[in-house]
Amino acid sequence: MSRHEHTGGPAHAHGHDGYDADPTHRHPPRPDLEDTPLAYHQVMQMAVVSLLVEKGVVSADDMRAQIERMDALTPARGARLVARAWVDGGFRERLLADSKAAAAELGIDLGPIPILVMENTPETHNLVVCTLCSCYPRFLLGLPPDWYKSRSYRSRAVREPRRVLAEFGTDLDPDSRIRVHDSTADMRYMILPMRPAGTEGMSEEALARLVTRDSLIGVAVPRAG
């Protein structure tokens, strides 16, 4: 093994003290996000953060903890709501009518922004997009996937939703209709997919595992096993 192969873990014996003393010792530079010049809004964000901390509005630990809380939210929370709606018709109706109150029954806090639950049926498929930016039910499902924020998805989901769905591997019945929900202002959306055939007798927990993030956005549908 040459001294520059750093796969050996503890065998990585050479120190980095005196790094410059050995001109043959070079780690190849890898490009990193931080190599690019700071953009205007990055500078603005850093300045605002500094001011908030300096003025004692929030502490650095408050911000760290909030980021940690947001990062801990996952689509599994939405999946629990869907699975309960599949096994409990009364809950399904309450979820469609007032998602915040229904979620609270399961101890799930939907946060400060209203979330509308749109139900797929054999006749109607629902799809969510935010053409203006990347509005997403983060307080329920966590951070959106990168493709959700792409210009391509945002511009095409409203204009040619069937082609977009086909690219995600979701082929709709040509006779069914699509409702595309453009999340442009103060509402957020979650899809209530149809329960797949062949799942009779499955437990609520097992059903929840069939409900993926993409099926909650509407680019996919849950499949049995």
């Binding site: 409203v158 006779d175 699509i178 409702r179 595309v180 442009t184 202002a185």
Partner: peptide
């Protein structure tokens, strides 16, 4: 109606886009 938004729209005539507007 999606067809009213996009002249070349070729999906189902009942397809819709629903938008939040003030």
């Amino acid at each position: 109606a999606s067809r009213s938004l996009w002249p070349a729209y070729d999906g189902c005539e009942r397809d819709r886009v629903e938008i939040e507007i003030y």
